[in-house]
Simulated assay, not measured.
Amino acid sequence: MVTATVWNEFRHEREDDAVREQYPDGIHEAIAEFLSDHGFDTRTATLDEPEHGLTEEVLAETDVLLWWGHAAHDEVSEEIVDRVQERVLDGMGLIVLHSAHYSKVFKRLMGTSCSLKWREAGERERLWAVEPSHPITDGIDEYIELPEAEMYGERFDVPAPETLVFSSWFEGGNVFRSGCCYRRGSGKVFYFRPGHETYPIYRQPEIQRVIGNAVEWAAPSEGPDPAYGERDPLEPLD
């Protein structure tokens, strides 16, 4: 069974009535609940726990880490960023959600500013599946309609994705690369844009299906462990 850990700052839900109304137990618990329903072994971790809830033991047991952050990126310790990066390079999957594009972890792995345009106007979004044969789009229609969303717009300052799975159109005219796949070391990384804290986007079945598919895709495979450094020859050398 794939083990997924859902990480969240868990600040907005405690401080903002509009967010608490949407996610009274926290965004992390809402995501963990539907991932459990999808059959994953799921746990949660939050910023204010010791070591942000991401101890070496927790990460060692995690196949896929999901990261949601917004208001407190700077409070994440460099030690934990190093720890997460090392686990991704070793094969742990990472799903980066919505405003976590600005997280220290994602910026470290991308090597860029990860900046973008944004606008909070509750506008309609169409999330187009531009790579319909990809495992992350399994069971999804050609597009997902989001009645209200925060706009993220190009230019999105990230490396060109190895696979672009979703592309968004917004009512105000902007477009955005909303589903980006990367590999870093032995690990898979998926950035997925939908999920602003004041809209019930994580309650939408299609969005839940995409995130569940992404966890399956990002989970470590059972391939060989690569060896590095100086090696003896496999055959005799003259």
Rank of each mutant, 00 (worst) to 15 (best):
residue 1 M to C: 01
residue 2 V to D: 01
residue 3 T to I: 08
residue 3 T to Y: 00
residue 6 V to T: 06
residue 11 R to G: 02
residue 13 E to H: 01
residue 13 E to V: 11
residue 15 E to L: 10
residue 15 E to F: 03
residue 17 D to K: 06
residue 18 A to K: 15
residue 22 Q to H: 04
residue 27 I to P: 02
residue 33 E to N: 07
residue 38 H to N: 13
residue 41 D to H: 02
residue 43 R to H: 13
residue 50 P to G: 10
residue 51 E to H: 03
residue 53 G to R: 01
residue 56 E to W: 00
residue 63 D to Y: 04
residue 63 D to S: 06
residue 64 V to A: 10
residue 64 V to N: 05
residue 64 V to Y: 02
residue 75 E to A: 08
residue 78 E to D: 15
residue 79 E to T: 14
residue 80 I to V: 15
residue 85 Q to D: 13
residue 89 L to H: 11
residue 91 G to D: 02
residue 92 M to F: 05
residue 93 G to Y: 08
residue 96 V to L: 03
residue 98 H to Q: 05
residue 98 H to T: 02
residue 99 S to F: 05
residue 100 A to C: 02
residue 104 K to T: 01
residue 115 S to Y: 01
residue 119 R to C: 12
residue 120 E to I: 12
residue 123 E to S: 11
residue 127 L to G: 08
residue 130 V to R: 10
residue 130 V to C: 12
residue 134 H to I: 10
residue 135 P to S: 13
residue 136 I to P: 01
residue 143 Y to S: 14
residue 144 I to T: 09
residue 149 A to P: 09
residue 163 T to P: 01
residue 163 T to L: 09
residue 165 V to K: 03
residue 168 S to Y: 09
residue 171 E to D: 09
residue 171 E to P: 05
residue 175 V to R: 12
residue 177 R to I: 03
residue 181 C to A: 14
residue 183 R to F: 01
residue 185 G to V: 09
residue 187 G to Y: 05
residue 188 K to T: 00
residue 190 F to M: 09
residue 192 F to L: 15
residue 195 G to F: 07
residue 196 H to G: 02
residue 196 H to R: 07
residue 198 T to R: 15
residue 199 Y to R: 12
residue 202 Y to S: 04
residue 203 R to C: 09
residue 206 E to A: 14
residue 208 Q to G: 06
residue 210 V to W: 07
residue 213 N to G: 09
residue 216 E to D: 13
residue 220 P to F: 10
residue 222 E to S: 13
residue 223 G to L: 05
residue 225 D to E: 15
residue 225 D to M: 14
residue 225 D to W: 07
residue 229 G to Q: 05
residue 232 D to H: 15
residue 233 P to D: 10
residue 234 L to K: 09
residue 234 L to Y: 13
residue 235 E to M: 11
residue 238 D to T: 13
